[in-house]
């Protein structure tokens, strides 16, 4: 596999009430070519394939929507300006990653 230098941004869901058997996990990194890749999964090793992904601008407007691939990743063009990424794990399993934490 060919990897690109990137800087890691990582988030765990820990802010929601309730007991979750499996913790959702998602992180994103900057590929250095104006694209961002996010990876996801669950703490039991379950795949995140099909999990909804959304990218918002700083005003909360949806810039793009998609879903995790069969490889549990999601690559998109890096937006201009500030943005945030949301990983929608269902049942309140929402992870938000600020674009400013996704470093090259």
């Amino acid at each position: 596999m060919i990897w690109r230098d990137s800087v890691f941004a990582f988030a765990l869901l820990g802010m929601y009430s309730g007991a979750f058997a499996h913790t959702p996990i998602c992180d994103c990194y900057d590929n250095g070519d104006d694209t961002i890749t996010c990876e996801g999964g669950f703490s039991d090793g379950a795949s995140a394939a099909g999990i909804a992904m959304r990218v918002f601008d700083s005003s909360g407007r949806i810039l793009l929507e998609g879903e995790m691939s069969d490889r549990s990743d999601f690559t998109f063009d890096k937006p201009d300006g500030n943005f945030r990424v949301e990983f929608e794990g269902g049942d309140g399993h929402l992870i938000q990653i600020d674009g400013r934490d996704i470093e090259e």
């Binding site: 379950a46 490889r71 549990s72």
Partner: peptide, 9 residues
């Protein structure tokens, strides 16, 4: 391996 169902590299 990234996830229990993923391909091992």
């Amino acid at each position: 391996q990234r996830g229990a169902e993923a391909v091992r590299e």
